[in-house]
Design a protein around this nucleic acid. Structure first.
Length: 506
RNA sequence: GGUCUGUUCGUCUAACGGUUAGGACACCAGAUUUUCAUUCUGGUAAUAGGGGUUCGAUUCCCCUACGGACUACCA
């Protein structure tokens, strides 16, 4: 097998889509598995769609996800530059070579010319039959062409696709694909602004950078035959990389590929990191900011379209590298199911050390300007650990550890708040008020002592007690919660509840 | 419309001619938990349809249906 050199080649037109992260991941896994090289190339040949900040965003996203770049933008390498806009002159020489060898030609058609051509021919495309009706170096005399060129008239260079030929290519995922050349149009190779199109730049760079495998989204499959032609005419067929066209990520419901709109609608991120649209200023939430751990996202993404063939589902990056093969990538598009991502997240979150978890809580508290001792944080994390999916849950589901409730769960109030509960809670609070430092066991003993004295079942008032302390109907172990809060606070909260709720009851 | 491509539980998928069609997420039920969650146990649930080939098709071939991608001087 030849040296594995793969590239991830996004264009900096905005935030990196989550599907792009998966494409990058598969490239990376292959590179690592075979001790190859992972290259990041920026395909910024469309100056009209260039978005400042997008490149930096891509670099940061990959770094966060744990996808390391060996060569390319940001790190450099032997085939620099890795930004296509900086390689502009290169493409021109290859386009010229194609023209010289009669595999490409100049075309001077205006937008209007093209429009008219499309209108008059059904299923129109610029190809072997229509090109003879157009303004190009195939229909114009050499003199005319030279004249136009010297005057500086705008032109593009188009590939001269043969009329009747079968183009074969072998895709590592889809097997052999055959296309009739008559179905391929004379694609523009060089645009009138002097920039190459994707097709030319991609092929030239993949060749020059000695790319061994082109792993990209399925949307490129239809143009792959064109690329094969380009390799052939440039004389690089022997060095042509192997292709692997990845199945697409589909909407969670309905049909079509996953889009930002679906994500917004269903309430999950579609970008790895927060992305602020430079025009609208609107910020789209990222996986990182939503609380997804990179290892969870990676594990989740890896399984969208690939599986190891065993029943193991939990994989670290190292394990993925070990297990990954292109052969085990599926053919069908994969529906995006955020619930599975959450499950992975919960798993990876729990496997973090207590210190890390405590750090999450402390981070949240810092943002809220709340002080908290290490010991208290440790206790809270211990009791909350089994209940969280995201780092922020420690704070969001445990706010009551820091602020007393101001309102109470209405269901519990209507169902469980009655004279008995008030009786028990009053007695209980008085009991602990004077007692020594509250710990979970004594809280429990005290509560049972009070209820048995009053002849009321503990179970009946427990939810009311929780509600008076936390405001909610469910939460972590109540006795431990009270221990963390301490006598005085518990007493205060119970009395506040009795005071405010009495009005509602009677 | 044309070209390419795909189709196994609701979802991600396993089974590369012979299995009671397996696993995971989700869902449901039971147990544990004085709540909720966790955890444990169990359960519901799929080969798109029709033809072939074969002793035997989820698996190979054809047709149909339904998806998807592409069809720009965008990538």
């Amino acid at each position: 097998m030849r040296e594995v050199r793969v590239r991830f080649a996004p264009s900096p037109t905005g935030a990196l889509h989550i599907g792009g992260v998966r494409t990058a991941l598969y490239n990376y896994l292959l590179a690592r598995k075979y001790n190859g090289t992972m290259i990041l190339r920026i395909e910024d040949t469309d100056q009209t769609r260039y978005v400042p900040g997008a490149e930096a965003y891509i670099v940061e996203s990959l770094a966060w996800a744990g996808i390391k770049i060996d060569e390319g933008v940001g790190v450099g390498g032997p085939y620099a530059p890795y930004r296509q806009s900086e390689r502009k002159a290169l493409y021109k020489t290859y386009a010229q070579k194609l023209v010289d060898e009669d595999h490409a030609y100049y075309a001077f058609d205006t937008e209007q010319d093209l429009e008219e051509m499309r209108k008059r021919t059904p299923n129109a495309q610029y190809d072997g039959v229509t090109r003879m009706q157009m303004k190009n170096s195939l229909t114009l005399s050499g003199k005319e062409v030279a004249q136009k060129l010297s005057v500086g008239e705008k032109y593009v260079i188009r590939l001269k696709v043969p009329g009747k030929e079968e183009i074969h290519l072998t895709d590592l995922i889809r097997g052999s694909v055959t296309v009739q050349s008559s179905q391929v149009d004379d694609k523009v190779l060089m645009k009138s602004d002097g920039m190459p199109t994707y097709h030319l730049a991609n092929v030239v760079d993949d060749y020059l950078m000695k790319i061994s495998h082109v792993i990209r989204g399925e949307e490129w499959l239809p143009s792959a035959p064109l690329h094969v032609l380009l390799y052939r005419y440039l004389g690089w067929e022997k060095e042509m990389p192997q292709f692997a066209h990845l199945p697409l990520l589909l909407k969670p419901d309905g049909n079509g590929k996953l889009s930002k709109r679906d994500a917004d609608k269903m309430g999950f991120p579609i970008f790895p990191l927060n992305w602020q649209d430079p025009e609208s200023g609107h910020v789209a939430i990222g996986y990182r900011e939503a609380g997804y751990l990179p290892e969870a996202l990676i594990n989740f993404l890896a399984f969208l379209g690939w599986n190891p063939g065993t029943e193991q589902e939990l994989f670290s990056m190292e394990q993925l590298i070990e297990a990954f093969t292109l052969e085990r990538i599926g053919k069908a598009g994969a529906r995006f199911d955020i619930q599975k991502a959450q499950w992975f997240n919960q798993h990876y979150l729990r496997s973090k050390s207590d210190d890390v978890l405590i750090g999450y809580l402390l981070d949240s508290l810092k943002k809220e300007n709340i002080d908290c001792s290490q010991e208290k944080a440790k206790k809270i994390v211990a009791v909350m650990k089994e209940r969280v999916t995201f780092p922020k849950d420690f704070w969001e589901q445990g706010k009551f550890f820091f602020t007393a409730p101001v309102s109470f769960d209405e269901q519990v109030v209507s169902k469980k708040w009655n004279d008995d509960t008030v009786k028990v809670l009053t007695a209980f609070s008085n009991e602990i008020k004077s007692g020594s430092n509250l710990i979970a066991e004594t809280a429990k003993d005290t509560l049972e002592m009070v209820t048995s004295k009053l002849g009321i079942k503990t179970g009946h008032i427990l939810q009311a007690l929780r509600m008076s302390i936390t405001g909610g109907a469910s939460g972590p172990d109540l006795m431990i919660t009270m221990e963390i809060l301490g006598n005085a606070e518990v007493f205060k909260r119970i009395h506040f509840a009795i005071k405010t709720l009495k009005v509602k009851v009677t």
